[in-house]
Write a protein that binds this DNA or RNA. Structure first.
Length: 212
DNA sequence: TACGTGATGCCC
DNA sequence: GGCATCACGTAG
């Protein structure tokens, strides 16, 4: 298994895709958002397995963050899982798209990391089929795109990310990480300027080009 | 750049 | 019911 980018092999030929243990997620949310960059996100379905390296994340910091669904400790049927242990999957629907988050902060703090983009690795043909397009650069460069490509849906709500069929494994170590404002939260007062979006510098599969 | 889409939750 | 939201695809 190889992975080609810009005509060169830049990823390991083989990756042991074994789930990171749940304790991996017991760190502060901003650190988790950075630590997840370069990790491999994998979904196994009856259709097949598809995976990609996480290249862009955003942190949402619970009751103090006006952009977070749990602002002011709002607990609804939708946000309930964010009040539980770190490492669970928080999926929600935005318009016609499903977005995937990893719960963080522990039961005391309802926080999460949104996965905004991945770099396709395995199961690329399956991802193309699910997305109905062939351009690899646009397969998974957005939070709604990557869930469709991997087959992630509301059925994954509350699943533990340390267990198949949806899990995260060690990937590669990013050379450099960039940081900037989050996307699509213009109506969130001061919170819109918090620099809680992280991405792998110069990676071609992030959802947007650098904005700081 | 602008619009239609149509899950979810909150505010009437 | 009406409106806003952590998008995306298509048309112009």
């Amino acid at each position: 298994m190889s992975h080609i980018l810009k005509g060169e092999l830049i990823r390991p030929l083989q990756i042991k895709a074994s789930p990171l243990e749940r304790q991996f997620y017991d760190i502060p949310t901003l650190e988790l958002a950075k630590s997840l960059l370069g990790c491999l996100l994998i979904k196994e379905t009856e259709e097949g397995v598809a995976s990609g390296f996480i290249v862009e994340t955003e942190a949402y910091l619970g009751p103090e963050d006006r952009a977070a669904h749990t602002y002011n400790n709002q607990r609804t049927k939708r946000t309930d899982v964010m009040f539980r242990e770190s490492g669970l999957v928080y999926t929600y629907v935005m318009h016609t798209h499903c977005l995937v988050n990893i719960v963080s902060g522990g039961p005391e703090k309802p926080e999460a990391v949104l996965i905004r983009a991945i770099e396709p690795f395995t199961g690329i043909d399956l991802m193309k089929k699910r997305r109905g397009m062939a351009d690899i650069k646009k397969l998974t460069n957005g939070p709604g795109k990557l869930t469709k490509a991997l087959g992630i849906s509301m059925e994954d709500y509350g699943h533990c990310i340390a267990e198949p069929p949806l899990f995260i494994s060690k990937g590669f170590q990013p050379e450099e990480i960039s940081q900037g404002k989050r996307i699509g939260i213009d109506n969130s007062g001061e919170a819109k300027d918090y620099p809680w979006r992280f991405w792998i510098t110069e990676n071609p599969f992030v959802s947007r080009k650098n904005n700081r």
